[in-house]
Amino acid sequence: MRVELLRPEARLLIVGGLSAGAALALCLIDPAAALTGWLGAAVAFAAIPAGALCLMAMMRLIPGAWGESLRLTCEAGTLLALPALALFLPVMLGVRAIYPWMAHRPETAFQAFWLGPWFYALRTLLWFLMLWGAARAIRARRRTRAVAAATLVAFPLLGSLVAIDWLMSLDLHLASSAFGLQCLILSVTLAFAGLLLFRIGAGARPYRVGVLGALLLTLLLLWAYIQFLTFFILWSPGLPDGAYWYGRRAGGWDVAEWAFGLLGGLPLLLLLLAKVRRSPRLLARLCIAVVAGKLIEFAWLALPGQGPVGLIGFALASLGLGSGAAAGLSIALRRRVRARRPT
């Protein structure tokens, strides 16, 4: 398979490769912090194929104007599933440095059984294989209805498993049944905002763009709801484990909380205005704000306790993987356009 590269794509890939390399080079200073930063960025990158598949499955089951203008972009997004799996290789190799359950003895028999490098890698692999296989079937227009329905059933279940593995298990004490949903809504919102931004930037004005603006509003409402609810459920009884989890995010992380709250909350309020929802230019700007907010949120989930090296690592890795995602989407979209072109 030959991959043609346009000049801007090649530039993005070079920038991305250099910053990703720099992020990994930070392992020489502090492997735990650097790899945790990488983990945060890799989880954000993995949100694109996951969110794209979720949207694509919904397009099949809930047809309408909203799907038509994003279908090819979502198909391109799902092609990033295997690159996303590759980006998890440093995480799988560095499990020992990243996760407390490798350093301390697990606290319960279940943790001892569930948390281990091989089982962890197996679940991660399973998730990406699900993304890859389901997306392939839907892209090929093969039994799409059944595959889409099965995907939407498997999505929250497997998605919760990997969200707990990747981010929640960074803290051995937190047990939140909503954590998976929290990560999934973050992922789908990030993916939708990223794909919509790419769609507005790359192509002609989308058909009935107001519907897409309304969908972004819906996702942000869901995000605000889930994000507040998880906080509220831990805040209400005020038990030590939950309080500790939020307590670790006090201090400097307050700024991050304000930042992602405003970067998600202000677009939410602005999207209430029909004029904003119908303007591709304003929507693109709101998408940038939402993507930035969600990246900060992934950092907020992954990084507390890791110090400045973790932050720099996350920033470099996000820049690198973000550039890679832009180039990858562009290459993938060309492939999809060629595949769907009538012959």
Partner: peptide, 13 residues
């Protein structure tokens, strides 16, 4: 539970 009288999170529901 030692919370302020005006406990905003509890009011939001």
């Amino acid at each position: 539970g030692g919370r302020p009288l005006i406990a905003v999170p509890a009011f939001l529901l």
